[in-house]
Amino acid sequence: MKILRNTLPISDLYNQMKSGELTINRSYQRSQGLWPNNSRSYFIDTVLNEFPFPKVVLRQTVDLKTKKAKREIIDGQQRLTTIRDFINNKFKLTSVSKKYNGKFFDDLEPESQSTLLTYEVSIDNIITATTEEILEIFRRINSYTLPLNTSEKRHATFQGEFKWFISDLTEIMTPFFESYDVLSLKDISRMMDADLITECCQLKFEGVQNRSAKKLENIYKEYDPQFPHEEEIKNVILTSFNFIKDNFAQVFEECKVPSYMFYSLMGALIFNKYSFPHDDDQFDDLQTSNNFCGDVNQTNETLIRIFTESNEKNENGTAPEFVKASIATTHSQKNRLIRIKYILRIIQA
């Protein structure tokens, strides 16, 4: 078995598929049509913006009758058929492609068409391999994949309005998470940023809940076909997030703010400005102020003090109840409520 590694422009791959020189061997490939339109659009958007995508693996043989080389797709069927179908104007891009929303291939400017057609795809071209070796390659390609966690499974399963809404928010908020170590790069790579943002949205849907993969999945499921509250929730999340960025940067610079504490801070701000669901009796003893915060400078000082005590697990400091709720079972509903109410009293002072 011999492997040649090179690149080919999309135009060459397209023409090879069109002529039949490049085909799909259905004895080991999955059936076509597995990607919904949003996923296909996101992939084409990836190409148009010249981001990389994983290499394609081909098998090359020679037809002794015609004396011509033939190639089979070993890995990359969905990618290549999506490219072919888009060039053939079989689907238009959806709103997940912000710049090219609603466009077929023929609707693109000539420069964008050229960008797609000249995009160089990384290729592993396998020569003189037996069928058994090809099947073993295919099995090994799939066995290397790290098992999906619940966040990744959810992101892969649902392809509707809410999933792409969260995807848009991660583009805006995740650089902040990474910059201030709210989440580690490893956490972000496993889509924990999407989980954190979804839980912040959940505050407006259901109030404070314990962390539950099932409850988050239900939100994705409910708003997969349509998400009529998109603009309202986007406004709530982004205005609260921007308030944190613009007013509490000192807190994040001077002390560690882990994801569960970011959630608590967002919860307090969202409740104070926008309230939670009307049937939520979790905050009967507290009222909203219709604004985010009273004295920002004083709030910064107090947050730094209690977050520091929490990080040091200092139960003998100024906020023992808050610290206890930050040491263990940080994602339980009880401890989340304790932290959010404590921060709420601080920002209302």
Rank of each mutant, 00 (worst) to 15 (best):
V182K: 06
L185Q: 13
L185N: 14
K186F: 09
D187H: 10
D187R: 01
D187W: 05
I188D: 07
S189W: 07
R190G: 01
M192K: 15
D193Q: 02
D193I: 06
A194S: 15
D195V: 13
D195A: 09
E199C: 05
C200S: 14
C200D: 13
C201P: 09
Q202W: 01
L203Q: 06
K204N: 13
G207M: 03
G207R: 12
Q209D: 06
N210M: 14
N210P: 04
L216M: 13
E217H: 04
E217I: 02
N218K: 15
N218P: 00
Y220L: 03
K221T: 07
K221C: 00
Y223T: 01
D224T: 04
D224V: 04
Q226K: 14
Q226A: 08
F227G: 12
P228E: 14
H229I: 09
I233M: 12
V236Y: 15
V236L: 01
V236C: 02
I237E: 08
L238K: 12
T239N: 15
S240A: 15
F241N: 09
F241P: 03
N242C: 10
F243M: 08
K245N: 13
K245F: 04
K245L: 12
D246T: 08
F248A: 11
A249T: 15
F252E: 04
E253C: 12
C255Y: 04
V257G: 03
P258Q: 04
S259F: 11
Y260E: 02
M261E: 11
I270F: 13
I270R: 10
I270C: 02
I270Q: 06
I270P: 00
N272H: 11
S275H: 06
F276N: 01
D279F: 13
D281A: 10
D281P: 01
F283A: 05
D284W: 03
D285H: 04
D285N: 13
Q287E: 12
S289R: 05
N290Y: 08
N290P: 06
F292I: 08
C293K: 08
C293A: 10
G294K: 13
G294D: 11
G294T: 12
D295I: 08
V296K: 05
T299K: 05
E301T: 08
L303F: 11
L303I: 01
I304T: 07
I306K: 08
N311V: 00
N311L: 08
N314G: 00
N316P: 01
N316Y: 01
T318A: 08
T318S: 10
A319M: 04
A319D: 11
A319Q: 03
P320I: 02
P320R: 08
